[in-house]
Design a protein around this nucleic acid. Structure first.
Lengths: 198, 198, 198, 198
DNA sequence: AATGAATGAGACTTCATTCAT
DNA sequence: TATGAATGAAGTCTCATTCAT
């Protein structure tokens, strides 16, 4: 716990986010990272014990920011549908506007670093976590509006399309405008809502 | 002028698939790979110019197998819905039953190897490719049954949930049985179909 | 177990012995070592897993040579005294004529590498080891000629002076000639033998 | 012009002694050392130019303390034998009771730091130094009681066993009690004394 | 054609030392 | 004067690739 200089810490995390998301964990040497942060190589190790620790810390920070963004402006008095759409749109917009963060998270979750365990733990913990805004929707009284399906399946139907489309967007295959994001959210809602007709 | 021995080529690709999917590209040294394939290290370089080339080639082969599996048994005389469900179920089952292939593809797509370009090219080509079974559904006369949305969005709504759920399944978070796969396919269909009611 | 080239292995061990004994384990980088052995850095790691493994292996080899030298020409039919003197002289001469080996062993035994444990184990095992030529003398019938003391004390009285004098010799403080070596051995014998007078 | 605070200097030397003896010169970073001394890293460099200088200085201090301890209570009016035994016992007891000092000295002497030269110089100077208590015994009239041997050989026979046995004691191979220390001293005396019988 | 020993660039990390505060 | 954050040289080790056999 040295770090008097919070600026330097931020600079390192910023450089890490950029290089990791652009080149991948394995192709972003600590030396280049230090360079990009305008810091000596050794200094990185004053702020973060390890390359792995740096990655983990960065994950925590990015995840934190994402969680904040998701719930921004969501009104619990609104209908389940409205809240859901709002959450999905928040999620999509944040990741669309923060491509570094998106690519970093994708990489973090898919690294066969044994990091999956982390995710597993998080999911297991949060699955009934009423802090999680989506869980609230899925479980609260309004639940009758939503299909009675296993939670992981609801997750998949709600988030899967978002991540998939963002991937295409990042690759330059689609230009994500507001209209499309709304269509996306509607589609996700259709996938999980109970319907009256056939 | 390479490859007199097709068996050897296959053995290398098989070893590569196993090691890459289990340890990741960066933790699967060429030497271990050659070992596992019962082949000299030097031989690997007779069949594949590069480690990267090996990865790319493996991708082609895995993708090919996946494409074959997807259309297996789909009957063009059936309803659009039935065909769609069949395709989604084929896709899901194949990947569920071939975890190595799934993990490899996931890693391939998420590696910032510049490999996204490859995928981009493929998608652009296939987007109007009438060979692509999904494109056929999306574009053919039956199209009135499906929402009028940009193709990438349809893709996202159709495939996103599949990949997301498979990820959880691989991580051991869900046990994917036949019932759940059908629920999944239904959800995907609900996301893209036109509906009559509200 | 690669190593088809026994010559290369020997060259590496030779370089290691020279550099370790001259500069110490910590001041003999693997790179310099590889240089001195006319070998690429990476090659050293084909023959020895580790720097530590290299040190351990070198110890085994040097110790082996020392053990052989000690018993050379010792005649079990001779008197206890004669045998003891012969052993001590063998020991002293070998180490005097092999300063690299001597310095290496000294360093090995004194490294607070946890290597002391190795020595401890060895001593504990060999303490009743009838293979050990000194133990044979100390324990056999002839024992009545030798003081009845704890074995570690006998060891200290027998070997301590040898090592001490060799240290001075290596430092250039003494010129060890044959006469002095005999006087040394006599002194060691006087230290452990039972005597008749006061 | 350095050292206003003698306490700080002592604290640093104390920490150095502990860490060096426990972890070795190379595994005792200046930072940890400063920590243990409750001193800033920079401060260490106000009191000691270098890590090497710190080591050298520490050696001087430890050696000084050892010299004092050795002659403690030795009575010049006693017999040569009694004085010798007293000296040896003093030496042994001090080192046994000061394991940090012992391990540090061992390491110092065996480091191929070029430090042997230092020792060489010291020995050469003290070889005729009538201040050295052992030299007094070896050279004074009482000399007829002691073998007529080169001084380094007498040194070896007198001190070698002590150091050797202490090494085993530190490693936990022997429990050094008073009786054994006396037996040790007797052995050393037997090694150097002139005798009447065969 | 097949092999695998050899190689060295380059990755991560440590730590003695400096210097601005 | 005292501090400790900053630094970068240097160390150990890995691994993709080559090339002599």
């Amino acid at each position: 716990m040295p770090s008097i200089d919070e600026n330097k810490r931020k600079a390192i995390l910023k450089a890490a986010l950029e290089l990791f998301s652009e080149y991948g964990f394995h192709n972003a040497p600590m030396a280049r990272l230090a360079d990009q942060a305008n810091v000596g190589v050794g200094s990185v190790y004053r702020y973060f014990k390890d390359k792995n620790t740096l990655i983990e810390t960065l994950y925590e920070e990015v995840d934190e920011a994402l969680q904040m963004a998701i719930i921004d402006g969501v009104d619990p008095t609104h209908s389940t549908r409205k809240q859901f759409l709002h959450l999905i749109i928040n999620l999509t917009c944040f990741l669309k506007d923060h491509p570094h963060e998106f690519k970093f998270l994708e990489q973090y979750y898919h690294s066969p670093f044994g990091i999956e365990k982390k995710r597993e733990k998080l999911l297991l913990e949060k699955i009934s976590d009423r802090q999680n805004p989506f869980m609230k929707l899925f479980f609260e009284g309004s639940r009758k509006e939503i299909k009675s399906l296993p939670v992981p399946l609801l997750h998949a139907l709600a988030f899967g399309p978002v991540l998939f489309l963002l991937r295409d967007a990042m690759a330059g295959l689609v230009k994500l405008d507001e209209a499309m994001i709304i269509q996306l959210a509607d589609g996700c809602w259709d996938a999980i809502r109970n319907r009256v007709d056939s």
